[in-house]
Design a protein around this nucleic acid. Structure first.
Lengths: 223, 223
DNA sequence: GATAGTTTCATACAACTGTTTGAATTGCAA
DNA sequence: TTGCAATTCAAACAGTTGTATGAAACTATC
């Protein structure tokens, strides 16, 4: 096993470079130069460039997913096996948003790396994302328990839209800032989380008996 | 000007190949082989590979944007300069969704190309997307007129979320189908449009005086 | 301190990339 | 037909890429 120094130096350098310049134009030679190691070290320690990228992404994904499940579990335990939908959605999108947004100058390398991964989507990363379905099913289950009257189809769509808003906001944060001329404050992460959760909750609860009647017939029917 | 035959053969072949295999692994040599033209023809007619990609994307973007504005204009004229927010949102996301979704086996090459462009996001395409802001401002204007009580910030967020749901659904349509085991029917484009418009409308109108009071305090406040 | 196993290193490899060149060919106008 | 411009073509260019090799340096064990 030895010192492991080279291995982690490569990981750190690669994450930094990918975060700064994207996957498109960072070569192995850039990485080994940044890490002060030999070119062959990458293939020796990781097998290939793609496996290096995959390891970086998997590490960060696992961290996010663990945090998601931690929040979800805590919420369901507190509610005796059933958590409010808002809290479930917050557990779903909160860790991702908190991990990627926030004041730019204090964003961690990991955060900037995950933003890149969200924007550029190279093959090794796509492959990993496709295996994320089992993880999402856990949230589907919790959402079913929270909204037993809701059809599965509606649950899936609600989940889809929640992730859509979170990821798109991360991907296009720069554009939203420019479009709104800075009026949309993407550094206020908790506000972003609240907005996403709010809209997703409406999407999942609108037009149902849920306590009182909904405000009015929704556009959904206007089709 | 001559026959133009070579030029359009390249465009058609490139669009087909990019649609099928993505930008990542389609080379100029693949394209000229598919188009039965000489390798140098691409640089002769387009200047560079990136300019070829840009031309493909611009052509399709313009078509979509024109359709968007056509629907928007028609709606506002019919309403005497002010259109219902649902109709504005439908003009915003409808053309994109209709252009990319629908039964897979009858999807046009152009549609599949635009899906790829939405997923992979190579530099020349990113550059063009960044110039889309002026186009979006026209929708901001219409939304302001439709919802004069709403703050600009809310308008921007609503627009952001509407685009988020549309684009994410296109990008991740495969995953949503898998997650829902086919229960979410992405071939029924008008249903998808209705769902996106419905949620976006709620996002933009919730918690306001709009006729009756809203059903209840929203998660937004639970923060 | 010899040995076996791990890690580093310089270097070469082999393939592929977009682009350029300059000559050949074509099409059209005078 | 002649002449001139536009287009096509084969070939080469110049650079980059990820990966493989085999020797050297190191490390820990006996």
């Amino acid at each position: 096993m030895a010192s492991d120094h080279t291995r982690s130096a490569i990981l750190a350098a690669a994450e930094r470079l990918y975060a700064d310049r994207g996957f498109g134009d960072v070569t192995l030679r850039d990485i080994v130069a940044e890490a002060n190691v030999n070119l062959a070290a990458v293939n020796y320690h990781f097998g290939s460039k793609d496996e290096l990228i995959a390891e970086l992404f998997v590490t960060r994904s696992i961290a996010t997913n663990r945090e998601r499940l931690r929040e979800l579990k805590a919420a369901e335990e507190q509610g005796g096996g059933r958590a409010p939908i808002e809290v479930i959605l917050r557990a779903l999108v909160g860790p991702t948003l908190r991990g990627c947004l926030g004041p730019e100058n204090q964003r961690s390398t990991a955060a900037r790396f995950m933003i890149r991964a969200s924007i550029e989507s190279v093959p090794p990363i796509r492959r990993i994302k496709n295996r994320e379905i089992d993880h999402l099913r856990k949230f589907v289950g919790a959402m079913r328990r929270a909204l037993p009257d809701r059809s599965d189809v509606d649950i899936y769509w609600g989940l889809n839209f929640a992730l859509a808003m979170a990821h798109h906001t991360i991907r296009e944060s720069e554009r939203l800032t420019k479009l709104s001329e800075g009026q949309c404050d993407l550094d206020d992460v908790e506000d972003v989380v609240a907005r996403v959760v709010s809209v997703a909750t409406m999407a999942l609860t609108a037009g149902k008996v849920e306590a009182k009647a909904p405000a009015r017939a929704l556009a959904r029917d206007a089709r």
